[in-house]
Amino acid sequence: MNKALRLDPRTKFILLLGVNLLFLVSHSLLVEIILVSFSLGVILIDRKYKSALKYLIIFLVLLYIDRGLSVYLSGFYFTIINFIAYALRRFLPCLIVGKWILETTEVSDFVATMWKLKLPTSVIIPLSVVFRYFPTIKEEWNSIRSAMKIRGFRLSFEHVMVPLLFSAVMVSEELSAAALCRGLDNPGKHSSLIEIKMHGIDYLILGIFLIIVCLTCTLKGVGVIS
Rank of each mutant, 00 (worst) to 15 (best):
E158Y: 11
N142I: 14
L164Q: 05
A168E: 03
W115R: 14
R89M: 14
L164P: 01
V169R: 12
M114R: 13
K138E: 10
T113M: 15
T105Y: 09
A178G: 06
V123L: 06
V162W: 15
K118Q: 12
E173Y: 14
N142R: 11
P93M: 12
G152N: 11
V130A: 11
P93W: 10
T136A: 00
T105I: 07
L127W: 02
L92M: 10
L155F: 04
S146T: 15
D109G: 11
F91Y: 07
L127M: 11
L88P: 15
S108C: 10
I137L: 10
A112Y: 12
W115C: 00
K99C: 10
P120N: 11
A179C: 03
A168H: 00
D109L: 14
L175H: 01
T121A: 03
F134C: 04
R182G: 01
E158S: 06
G152W: 03
R154K: 06
G98K: 03
V169L: 11
K99Q: 10
S172Q: 12
C181T: 14
M161T: 09
E173L: 09
K118F: 11
R154Q: 06
V123W: 01
I101E: 00
V130C: 04
T121H: 12
L164H: 06
M114E: 14
I96P: 00
L155A: 11
K116A: 12
I96H: 06
V111D: 05
V130G: 03
S146Q: 14
A112K: 01
I137E: 02
V171K: 15
T104D: 11
I101P: 09
S167A: 06
K118S: 05
L102R: 09
G188Q: 12
I144P: 05
F134H: 03
S167W: 03
K99E: 07
S176F: 08
G183P: 01
H159S: 09
V160N: 05
L180W: 01
R154I: 04
G188K: 13
V111G: 00
M170Q: 12
K149Q: 10
P93G: 06
V169Y: 13
F153N: 06
W115H: 13
S172H: 13
F134N: 04
P93F: 11
E103H: 03
L88W: 00
A147P: 15
L184T: 04
L165W: 13
T121K: 14
S156N: 04
R151S: 03
E140A: 07
L180G: 04
M170F: 07
S122P: 06
C181H: 01
M161L: 08
L164R: 01
A147I: 05
H159C: 01
L117P: 10
